[in-house]
Computed example of a mutant assay.
Amino acid sequence: MAKLLYFGIGSLDGYVSDENGRFDWAEPDHEVHAAANEVARPIGTYLYGRRMYDVMSFWASSEAESDPEPVMQDYTRIWRAAEKVVFSTTLAEASTDRTRIERSFDARSIAELKRTAAADISIGGAHLAAQAIAAGLVDEYIFFAYPVVVGGGTPFFPRAVHLDLDLVDVHRFGNGAISMRYRSLHTHQH
C-alpha cells in the first residue's frame, strides 16, 4: 500500500505563505532543494489544489528545463515523470502532461489510490491537504521550516485538528532551515 505524504516549506511559526500570499522568504537554496528532491524522488502521483498546481506547473516550462543548475534539472525530471491530479471546480483543462482534473475531493477514491498505487503519493496545497488530514488519509508529514516568523497567513496544519505524530527524521541545513518528518499515529477532529 502506498503512503500519502504531505510536504511543505514554510516559516518557523508554521505558515506556507504569509498574509499577503507571499512565500519568497522560503525559497529553497541548493542544499534545501536537493533535500526536497530526495523527498519527491519516490513519489508517483502528486495531488494538488488549484493554486498549488498553478505554482508547480512552472516545472513544465522551458525556463525550468533550461535552468543550468543540476538540482533544478533533477527536480524538473522528477516532477515531469510523476502523475498529477488537480482538484479544481474551475480549471477547464490541464496545462501539463500526465495531469488529470478532478472536480471534488473524494476520500474514498484517495484511499483506493493509496491501496492500488505502485509508488507513494504526495498532497500539496494546505486547503486540499486539510481535507485529506480530516479524512485520516495522511501517513507522513514533511515540513521544512525556515528561520523566519511571518505571524500569519496560510498554515501548514489545519485548525481544529489534533494529530499524534512520531518523529521519524530531523535535519538542520546550513541556511538555518530544519526539515522534520513525522509519521501519523492518530487524527482527532475538534
Rank of each mutant, 00 (worst) to 15 (best):
G152K: 07
R98P: 00
E19Q: 15
L185W: 06
E63K: 15
Q131I: 04
V39P: 02
E65K: 07
D29S: 13
E93A: 13
M72S: 14
R41M: 07
R103T: 13
Q189V: 14
R183V: 02
P147N: 08
S109H: 03
P68R: 12
D139L: 13
W59T: 01
Y141W: 04
V148W: 06
A111V: 01
M56V: 07
T89A: 14
R108G: 01
I78W: 11
E102R: 10
R22Q: 14
E65W: 03
F7C: 13
R77L: 08
A35Y: 01
H190P: 01
P155T: 11
S184A: 12
K84P: 04
D13Y: 03
R80E: 01
M1W: 07
S61W: 08
E112S: 12
S104N: 12
Q131S: 06
S95W: 04
A60Q: 14
R172T: 11
S95F: 05
D106K: 03
E19L: 14
V161F: 12
S88C: 03
E140D: 10
W79S: 02
S184I: 04
H127C: 13
G151Q: 08
T90Y: 09
H30P: 09
F105K: 01
K3R: 14
E102H: 08
E38L: 12
S95Y: 04
R159V: 10
L113Y: 02
H190I: 08
A35C: 06
F144E: 14
Y141R: 05
M52P: 04
D24C: 13
H127S: 15
M56F: 14
V148F: 11
A177L: 03
S104W: 09
F173V: 02
V86L: 08
R98L: 07
V170G: 10
G44M: 05
A132K: 00
K114W: 00
V55G: 07
H190D: 05
L5S: 06
R100V: 08
G10Y: 07
E19Y: 15
F143L: 09
A119N: 09
R159F: 01
Y48I: 00
D166W: 05
A134M: 13
R80T: 00
S109L: 05
R22F: 11
H171Y: 15
E140G: 10
V148S: 14
M52H: 12
R183F: 03
D166A: 11
Y46G: 06
I121E: 00
P28Q: 12
E69W: 09
V149D: 00
R108M: 06
P28T: 11
L113C: 02
F23D: 02
V148G: 08
S109T: 03
E65H: 03
L137T: 00
P155L: 11
R183C: 04
S104H: 13
F157H: 14
G176I: 02
T187F: 09
A111L: 12
F156W: 04
I9L: 15
Y6T: 06
M180Y: 09
V71P: 06
R80I: 01
L91C: 09
G44D: 08
A36S: 06
L163Y: 12
W59E: 04
S104T: 14
I133L: 04
E27H: 06
E31M: 01
F157D: 13
V55H: 09
Y6M: 14
I43M: 12
A134I: 12
D97T: 03
I142P: 10
Y15F: 15
